[in-house]
């Protein structure tokens, strides 16, 4: 099947530092793919390059909604344009809108799927009102999906840590993506929360029918969730394969445990 995300030879330099070195990666429809690697390997940079937050030095990024239009080239697009195309992300260090409620945070995610502008805002005609109603309803649904309905009117900054991570997921889902990029979604969660997250991510994939690419350090989570795993070290892809293959890959073991372990 045609991949939903197809990355060729992605390269990113910061001054002298090569944070990404000709990385190839692809994600297929309804697949859960993990991107792992030691700290500083360039995983977050990879996300930033795909989502238009950084402009990659070289390489190509293609994406296509499954069953939808032709592949679109994402290089050079602004972050909001990438999101409009159907890629949505969360951030490693949570970036919610702290002084907005949980519901409002998710409503912001609906922004690129709604259209009322200045005139609509001032006159608030039937179309605008309907759109607002739908925005609220859909946002609330998403809060329920990530199990945050109890916090609906709570300020994002008042939410517990694990809830903030899930709120970011709901906000990203609100943009109606076909590919969800999660940057360390389990970071800072306790084992119970991680278990729930595992279940949530699978459920999102199944119910929404979308693909998920996640960066994660929790190996147990990665192994149980992923269909395929990509491993990065020092900006380069050092391995890819099924969880079973990665588990026994000597390169990967070396990268994680250092020379002496081999």
């Amino acid at each position: 099947m045609e991949p939903v995300l197809d990355v060729h030879q992605l390269t990113m330099n910061f001054g002298g530092l090569r944070a990404l070195d000709s990385v190839d990666l692809d994600v297929r429809p309804k697949e859960i793919v993990a991107l792992i690697g030691p700290n500083g390997a360039g995983k977050t940079t990879f996300f930033n390059c795909i989502t238009g937050i950084y402009e990659p030095t070289g390489g190509d990024v293609f994406a296509a909604r499954p069953g939808g239009a032709r592949k679109a080239r994402l290089n050079g697009l602004k972050p909001n344009q990438v999101t409009e195309k159907g890629l949505a992300r969360t951030f490693q260090n949570i970036r919610l809108f702290p002084n907005m409620t949980a519901l409002e945070n998710v409503m912001i995610g609906r922004h690129c799927r709604t259209s009322s502008g200045i005139v609509g805002a001032i006159f608030r005609g039937p179309r605008t009102r309907r759109e607002e109603r739908e925005t609220v309803a859909r946002s609330h649904e998403l809060l329920e999906k990530v199990d945050l309905a109890e916090y609906v009117n709570e300020l994002a900054s008042n939410l517990p840590y694990g809830a903030q991570r899930r709120l970011e997921i709901a906000r990203a889902l609100a943009t109606e993506p076909f590919l969800l990029l999660l940057d360390e979604p389990a970071a800072g969660m306790n084992p119970q929360e991680t278990l729930e997250l595992d279940e949530l991510i699978t459920r999102i994939r199944d119910e929404e029918g979308i693909s998920i690419l996640l960066i994660e350090h929790d190996m147990k989570l990665v192994m149980s969730l992923s269909d395929r795993i990509f491993v990065m070290d020092y900006g380069r892809k050092i391995a890819e394969g099924s969880p079973e293959q990665i588990r026994v890959n000597p390169e990967v073991i070396k990268a994680y445990l250092g020379e002496e372990a081999v």
């Binding site: 970036r95 009322s116 609509g120």
Partner: peptide, 25 residues
């Protein structure tokens, strides 16, 4: 304006403009 889609996006932009763009604004 304040209580509209546009007003919300202004507020979000003030709070975190990178997250805001990543949400498609």
């Amino acid at each position: 304006l304040q209580n509209s889609r546009l007003g919300r996006s202004w507020l979000a932009l003030k709070e975190d403009d990178i997250a805001c763009q990543a949400m498609g604004i």
